[in-house]
Write a protein that binds this DNA or RNA. Structure first.
Length: 515
RNA sequence: GUCCCGUUCGUCUAGCCCGGCCUAGGACACCAGGUUUUCAUCCUGGUAACAGGGGUUCGAAUCCCCUACGGGAUACCA
């Protein structure tokens, strides 16, 4: 019965895409996709002074990064273009003329000072401050005189007065207002540029938009636009004005508590699917007991009507948790791929290419220990570095177990004569292939080309028994010696990753500097 | 000031439209235990909420009214 839905996201390129904008885009996108409709992007660049190419690029990149694509709009074209408002000026003029002819718009010559003065008067009288409609009913002669004296005026909308208007809102329900509360708002500026409300209506009409999801700061604009649609003899889209995203304090999200620019999340290494998931959850819930869901799952259930009507606060902690959750569930091969842009110097590019097995193993060892892609760099650096330096905790462990330090050299000797994988990234492909890390307890291949984590553990346990030292006391200094830290993957995964030469060298270095 | 919207654990929310299944469920965070060579993961358990006040009703988180608090809008910005 209803036509296929057409929704849009209509940002103005005056800054980067922020979290709130991304969520708005997301809901519009989802509503379209869920119903097999179209999603388009329209650029509202009528504010020429503030619009920039750079902002546009950032917005498009931000949308793509969270996984939002569009059927019509910049870079993809479409049958309802152009998709930049500054390229549609003639269209607005045509509609403006139609409205003038129909008596629904009039020219206003009031100076900014006069408008302001009128506002203050109303305010003082306890009424809503707005344009006092002083030029609403000018005679033709008065109009001509003013134009001759002051030049072209702005085109204002002749708001029907004293009329109760109810706006059916998909999110808020029916919202009513007396139209007299609304301004005779400016549709076209004296320079011919349309304002937001006017261009928006013309475009939504021309582009066949059926639903509009947008922030609740536009609720009042919803009335203005709906009335205009009515006077144009057209049906307004179904509006859904959704609550804003707030910061921890319940105030507008500020840069202090969270990144406002969506691309900052990309740069910090958040998993985009998690950002998508989390943002979706800010005001919409998949089900009573499931927070993590795929796009496909979401689309199967999404309905605009289910978007919550109360504001929500942005919680970076949960976002991070969710990012980590996505990482944990990722295929290790994919993780390696996606972590690559973030490793910097920690894993030299040459090693990345020459020793995929080693890199895979190293990264996989940290899969459940990171929440952001970017965290991998610092974590794995010790594997690929030439030597390590101890952090405070590691140094403490070393001094605390000073009695076992002498044994480190002996352990080094033992490893030196053992069949460990090589420390040379290029010479250990078979070893890394034979032992996918992190090693699971109990499992160990039989026909292995070298010692694996389990064999290494057995070896060290025997070593301790021979020398009558506590296994638990050796483990910590060894870990510190090898990795420079006290936390990390299983100790024998660490030994394995390092390979013989590096493990031996680090044990000896630690023994020397702490003995 | 005026108009509009909102208010369930610290946070995101389920439940509310179509009153009883709600001794209010889930998730993050937090606390306690377990697994473990460390960290992390994982598992088990716990703390914790219907803004307040009036109605309506046999019965209200759910319906109505008032108050308080929060947010938004009050532009020739979007």
């Amino acid at each position: 019965m209803t036509a296929t839905p057409r929704l849009r996201f209509a940002p103005s390129p005056t800054g980067p895409l922020h979290i709130g904008g991304a969520r708005t885009a997301l809901y519009n996108w989802a509503a379209a996709r869920a119903q097999g409709g179209s999603f388009l992007l329209r650029i509202e660049d009528t504010d020429r002074a503030r619009s920039t190419e750079e902002s546009l690029r950032q917005i498009l990149a931000g949308l793509r990064w969270v996984g939002i694509d569009w059927d019509e709009g910049p870079e993809v074209g479409g049958a309802h273009g152009p998709y930049f408002q500054t390229e549609r000026l003639e269209l607005y003029q045509r509609y403006a003329q139609q409205l003038i002819d129909g008596g629904h718009a009039y020219e206003c010559f009031a100076t900014p000072e006069e408008v302001q003065e009128g506002r203050e008067k109303l305010q003082a009288a306890g009424q809503r401050p707005m344009y006092d409609r002083r030029h609403r009913d000018l005679s033709a002669a008065e109009r001509d005189a003013l134009r001759a004296e002051r030049g072209p005026g702005s085109l204002r909308f002749r708001m029907p007065l004293d009329q109760q208007w109810t706006l059916p809102d998909l999110c808020k329900g029916d919202v009513s207002i007396n139209l007299a509360e609304l301004d005779d708002w400016v549709m076209i500026r004296p320079d011919g540029m349309p304002t937001y409300n006017f261009a928006c209506v013309v475009d939504d009409l021309e582009m066949g938009i059926t639903h509009v999801v947008r922030g609740e700061e536009h609720l009042m604009n919803g009335f203005k636009q709906a009335v205009l649609f009515d006077l144009l003899g057209a049906a307004a889209p179904q509006y859904a004005h959704i609550p804003l995203i707030l910061g921890k304090g319940g105030k507008k999200l500020s840069k202090r508590e969270a990144s406002v620019d969506i691309l900052e999340y990309r740069d910090k290494g958040y998993v985009p699917e998690a950002v998508f998931n989390y943002i979706t959850l800010l005001g919409w819930s998949f089900s009573g007991d499931q927070d993590v869901f795929s796009k496909q799952e979401m689309l199967a259930k999404f309905r605009i009507e289910d978007i919550g009507s109360s504001g929500s606060k942005f919680d970076d902690e949960k976002l991070r948790w969710m990012s980590g959750d996505y990482i944990r569930r990722m295929d290790p091969a994919e993780l390696v791929e996606r972590v690559r842009p973030f490793v910097g110097e920690a894993i030299p590019a040459a090693v990345f290419d020459a020793a995929p097995g080693l890199v895979r193993n190293a990264v996989a060892c940290y899969q459940e220990r990171i929440e952001l892609f970017a965290e991998i760099a610092d974590k794995v650096a010790w594997v690929f570095a030439d030597a390590v330096s101890f952090d405070d905790q590691a140094q403490k462990k070393m001094t605390k177990h000073a009695d076992v330090v002498p044994h480190l050299a002996a352990y080094a000797d033992l490893l030196e004569s053992s069949n460990l994988p090589s420390s040379d990234p290029a010479a250990r492909a078979a070893a890394d292939a034979a032992f996918p890390l992190p090693s699971k307890q109990g499992a160990e291949p039989v026909a292995e080309p070298c010692m694996g984590p389990a064999a290494l553990e057995a070896q060290l346990r025997a070593f301790c028994e021979e020398r009558d030292i506590k296994f638990g006391h050796v483990v910590h200094p060894v870990r510190a010696a090898l990795t420079g830290t006290t936390a990390g993957p299983g100790l024998f995964d660490c030994v394995f990753l390092l390979g013989r030469d590096k493990a031996v060298a680090r044990l000896r270095a630690a023994a020397a500097s702490n003995g």
